[in-house]
Design a protein around this nucleic acid. Structure first.
Lengths: 242, 242
DNA sequence: CGGAAATTTGACAACCTTCAAGAGGAGTGG
DNA sequence: CCACTCCTCTTGAAGGTTGTCAAATTTCCG
């Protein structure tokens, strides 16, 4: 758990020995989630934050008519609800996509850490800002791009983020993405039928395939072109030193 | 300028005398923006943050085909690019909607403030998380709701936020919202023609009218019902003390 | 007053959603 | 071991909605 968080923060932020020592003392509680199990529900008032250890979790809004809208997906090292640190009541839920392992870290421990080790606080703040940048991109993707480009952009982002996190360990051109087509529809704002036909179209281009919860990128540059994908919004380059 | 920022932060966060004294010493530079003028452009590497003093500014993405997608709008007291504090390169632009006044606060001054006055840092962090909550809501609005509800929800949010900021000062049921229909289309992901017809439909319900850059809410509960508007995601209630 | 921009209206084609049904797999219970 | 059910994916067809194209009207500004 501590290693996962440390590695994630160090991608972006410079932490000194004392910062890391403090990180390593964070208390936490591990938890295994079954596929589809909720970690937090809309309306909850959580007093701990989630760190994804293994697998994938998804944020979603529940609408009055029972409809569900997925907002974002998170992998190892992500803190999907640092968002909730200063917010009393959850405005969305977080569930496991496929089986997943998470760690729960008490809010109080994180807040106490900020006081003693500001650099750690700033590193976590930065994580929440990167999340926000991804949200902005999602607004544009779902609002302005037609189905084919929209789906392609989504796959590009998931692949790019997985690659940034795991390197080539996940296999050449392969990325874990355990959604159903219906869930992809609830992510991109398209009907199941349109999702299905759009996927067929994507497959025919030869740029990628997506079966059994696994995304296979066969021609990255073609996929990125179709999806108008420019990864600069993910801000994965090293930032200024603090 | 200092009063605007102080009032805004104190809506959510408890600041003591020393915090406020430090806030009041923040250096800044005022700037007037003409309608449509950019404050920051996509790709810039700004070294100061924007505080909206008067009027309205809008964030937007520029797409390769010249198309523009508006992400969010900001009024007096908002810090539309606190988002950029820890991010090297802007992934979006910010422009004035109508004439506006902003203040530019050097990043270094803000960062230095965090070290001396952590409570101020946490208050600004909180602002960025509220922004993120609005982004999430926008994803759902633009992806899952049909035109009529989508537009109604958008107007509800703008009105509710203006009311939270200005109280009834802006006039009974009135709220400043200087967009063109084309810009509303670029916000909601709809064509101009659909925007126009959706607005006519909204007017016919008697819930609201929107002309000459001014939103008039005639029947709030009806408008909120049409837009399925639940303001809890704006988190305007007092949060836990830090 | 004249020209540009914004709003409004109409018509049509294209696209997407909905409805419906069938095929393929996984898991369960007899 | 097989039958059954449930779920996902796939395909077809019909209908509605939205976008595009085009043009008229109004408003805004110089």
């Amino acid at each position: 758990m501590h290693a996962v968080l440390r590695q994630k923060l160090q991608i972006h932020s410079a932490l000194d020995v004392d910062d890391i020592a403090a990180l390593n003392k964070l208390p936490y509680q591990g938890r295994d989630l079954a596929d589809g199990e909720d970690a937090i529900c809309q309306g909850d008032r959580p007093n701990s934050s989630i760190l994804v250890i293994e697998g994938m979790v998804g944020r979603y809004h529940s609408l009055a008519d029972g409809h569900r809208q997925f907002i974002s997906f998170h992998i190892t090292g992500d803190l999907p609800d640092a968002q909730a640190l200063f917010i009393a009541e959850m405005d969305h839920s977080i569930r496991a996509m496929g089986a997943a392992k998470i760690a729960l870290i008490p809010h109080e421990a994180i807040l106490a850490l900020f006081v003693r080790r500001p650099a750690v606080g700033l590193a976590i703040w930065r994580e929440t800002l990167l999340d926000a940048a991804i949200f902005r991109s999602t607004i544009t993707n779902n609002s302005a791009r037609p189905p084919l480009a929209r789906a392609a952009h989504f796959f590009c982002e998931q692949y790019y983020r997985a690659r940034a996190r795991f390197g080539r360990r996940s296999g050449v051109g392969i990325c874990y993405l355990p959604l159903s087509q219906a869930q992809l529809g609830d992510t991109l704002g398209m009907s199941i039928v349109t999702v299905n036909r759009t996927l067929q179209q994507l497959r025919r281009t030869g740029a990628m395939d997506w079966t059994e919860g696994s995304l296979q990128v066969k021609n990255w540059s073609k996929l990125a072109t179709i999806g108008e994908f420019d990864p600069s919004y993910l801000h994965l380059r090293a930032p200024r030193r603090l």
